[in-house]
């Protein structure tokens, strides 16, 4: 229901952050008025309809990937034919 994209903060003017979407040179201005704390340059925001809803949490992202790796590791290897 709610399309939101991650974007990297390049510049901040007041409550407006200019953010880079994906790796290329596509930028969007997003309001940061809904964030509990002002973001920093280099933060990744999740943006919906021109408003930042959250700052992405790097530690949590790494944690998720780590636990995914663990889930997979304790499983039977795939693609082995009897």
């Amino acid at each position: 229901m709610c399309l939101a994209v991650p974007a990297e903060v390049l510049d901040i003017q007041g409550e407006m952050a200019t953010c880079r979407v994906d790796r290329g040179q596509t930028t969007i201005k997003a309001s940061t008025m809904l964030l509990p704390e002002a973001p920093k340059l280099g933060d990744f925001l999740i943006i919906h309809a021109g408003f930042a809803l959250r700052v992405l949490d790097r530690e949590q992202a790494e944690e998720s990937l780590k636990s995914l790796g663990e889930i997979v590791e304790c499983s039977v290897p795939s693609g082995v034919e009897g």
Binding site: M1, C2, L34, H48, A49, L53
Partner: peptide, 11 residues
Amino acid sequence: GFETTAPTIAG
């Protein structure tokens, strides 16, 4: 919209 969008309208 739901709770994702409503705050953007409120803002």
